[in-house]
Amino acid sequence: MKSKEVRERIRRGEFQKNTSGACDEYVQANVVILPKEFAFDFFLYTYRNPKACPLIEVLEAGEYESRLAKGSDIRMDIPLYHVFINGKLHEKRGDIRDLYQDDYVTFLLGCSFTFESQILNNGIYLRHVDYKKNVAMYKTNMETEPAGRFSGPLVVSMRPIANEHLEKVIEITSRFPNMHGAPVHIGDPSKIGIEQIECPDYGEFVEMKDNETPVFWACGVTPQAAAVRANIPVMITHAPGHMFITDWTNDDFLYEIGEKIPSSSE
């Protein structure tokens, strides 16, 4: 399906699952919506933490149509929203039209689902996609760079990668700095504060094989951890793994314009 078709299905309540593997050729985005009075602090937070919060668009206060998706409505085009009130997850819902206010500013952040499509195009197996599971995500002991009200731990996503493909996966993902880029850690999860890899903070764990290594990337769920610590009156985000699907293709965000990543068949 085209990106617009999926957004329309989401609006009708016909698509309510995570968006991993949906519209593989289109850029998906993490979403943060908050009152204008906190927007500059959050903008500065994204600037200081580009690996976790790679900014790809900011909407004007009260605006809800993304320039990356004609006819979109950020208030109802995401399968599931998280609503934080005073630093606590208050509710989960599939539509926020009745909550949206004229002073709300929306930030769209790059998502690792983009580089997942390129990994798959190179014939490299991703178990969570094959199993139709949400990618596993973890809070780490690495702190993000604070900005104003915002600070908190770096959240990472983890994918088991066959050892023979590690170098290629690093090469592929490094070409997408607007989508979290290269891994932040490879190997022993305890070195970044993850003691039980089988128990992710968000998403779903998939088994690890003997010939695989856990690889960790900065994750767009990081702002949700920051929202808890910031304790601001209201902040609305996507639920982990339930992204906003744009009309931009993944090739539009290649690090070097016009450069293609050769597939394994080329």
Results as ranks from 00 to 15, higher is better:
M1S: 06
S3L: 13
K4C: 08
E5A: 15
R11C: 11
G13L: 02
Q16I: 13
Q16F: 05
T19S: 03
S20I: 13
G21S: 06
A22C: 11
D24V: 09
V27M: 12
A29L: 08
V32A: 03
I33N: 09
L34R: 13
K36I: 12
E37Y: 11
F38L: 06
A39K: 12
D41Q: 05
D41T: 05
D41Y: 07
F43P: 00
P50L: 02
K51V: 00
C53I: 03
L55H: 01
L59F: 04
G62R: 14
S66C: 04
S66Y: 05
A69G: 02
K70E: 15
G71W: 06
R75F: 10
D77Q: 06
I78S: 07
P79A: 12
L80C: 08
H82S: 07
F84M: 02
G87Y: 01
K88T: 14
L89K: 08
L89A: 02
L89T: 02
H90A: 08
E91K: 14
K92F: 01
R93A: 01
G94W: 01
G94T: 06
D95I: 10
D95V: 10
R97H: 07
D98V: 14
D98Q: 06
Y104R: 13
Y104N: 10
V105P: 01
L108G: 03
L109G: 01
S112I: 14
F115K: 09
F115N: 05
S117P: 09
L120I: 15
L120K: 12
L120D: 07
N121S: 15
N121G: 15
N121E: 15
N121W: 12
I124W: 03
Y125V: 13
H128K: 03
H128F: 14
